[in-house]
């Protein structure tokens, strides 16, 4: 945990990104959680954060920051050591503070509880503040906040690519193309569910989504010399970003899958046991 995601900071600082080694050998992998399941858990956790943020009427920047913090955390710690649902609440709680849009613990707990019940087609009645369930969720949130801060070395700075992306389009005189801007913006939102934001710096991500959006809008872009060089992006890295996006869209979380994904340690242990006996 000492040699982790942190190692950055200061100035108009770049984001904390993970090393190749960290990416290949995550704490969850060491705990025997298959990479494919980790991807699905990340995806689901971020989806829950996004939905919870909407219900809490948090601004997109808060939801985005929460998802990036969530992604970073699970490169430093294992899904087996920190319940996913608690970290959903904790990451949102921290991001709300970081982005100066603080939310009440009770509200976050209730929304997260509602989403869990809803995704599992269970009773969605709000929790009574005196029940054990509520108490557990609240405690889980506070534990998750602390674990998150410690794991990330209190480096809660998240540089998002949204404004960069808009600036780049402006610089190329493309900001008037509404559908292009909207498409690129949506890609940035969706990309939060993949590890892209902990693998690449914002300028790379911004260029990658512009490239992908332009391709879909069949908009020719200057290739000689390639336009992204102006923004110091690397073509190979952009390709990697778009690969993640492609896989995300090719294989989205279905309702059925979301219903069965393990949200805490007990469920995870059971899930792993069942899937190993299936094979």
């Amino acid at each position: 945990m000492q040699q982790s995601v942190r190692q950055t900071t200061l100035a108009a600082l770049p984001n904390a990104v993970v090393s190749r080694e960290q990416f290949a050998r995550t704490p969850s992998s060491r705990d025997g959680i298959p990479a494919s399941l980790q991807d699905r858990l990340r995806m689901f956790g971020c989806e829950l954060i996004q939905s919870a943020g909407v219900l809490l009427s948090a601004p997109q920047v808060t939801m985005a920051t929460a998802q990036v913090l969530f992604q970073r955390f699970y490169f430093v710690e294992s899904f087996r050591d920190m319940d996913l649902l608690d970290m959903v609440a904790g990451a949102l709680f921290v991001a709300a503070k970081v982005e100066e849009t603080p939310k009440r613990i009770t509200d976050i707990v209730n929304v997260v509880h509602f989403l869990r019940q809803h995704r599992r087609h269970l009773d969605t009645a709000p929790l009574d503040g005196f029940t054990q369930d509520y108490y557990n969720l609240r405690n889980g949130l506070l534990t998750a906040e602390w674990r998150l801060l410690v794991a990330l070395g209190f480096d809660v700075h998240v540089q998002l690519p949204y404004s960069l992306m808009v600036n780049y389009l402006q610089a190329m005189g493309l900001s008037g193309k509404k559908s292009l801007v909207q498409r690129a913006w949506n890609y940035l939102n969706d990309a939060l569910r993949t590890p892209i934001y902990v693998l690449h710096q914002p300028h790379t991500i911004a260029c990658a989504v512009i490239q992908l959006a332009a391709r879909h809008e069949q908009l020719p872009m200057p290739e000689d010399p390639p336009w992204w060089q102006v923004f110091e992006a690397d073509a190979t890295e952009m390709q990697a970003v778009n690969g993640w996006l492609g896989r995300l869209y090719a294989d989205p979380l279905t309702d059925d899958e979301a219903r069965t994904l393990p949200l805490n340690r007990e469920e995870l242990a059971r899930y792993l046991k069942q899937s190993s006996s299936r094979h």
Partner: peptide, 8 residues
């Protein structure tokens, strides 16, 4: 990102 400082 042009003004990136060296990571410490």
């Amino acid at each position: 990102h042009e003004h990136r400082a060296p990571a410490t």
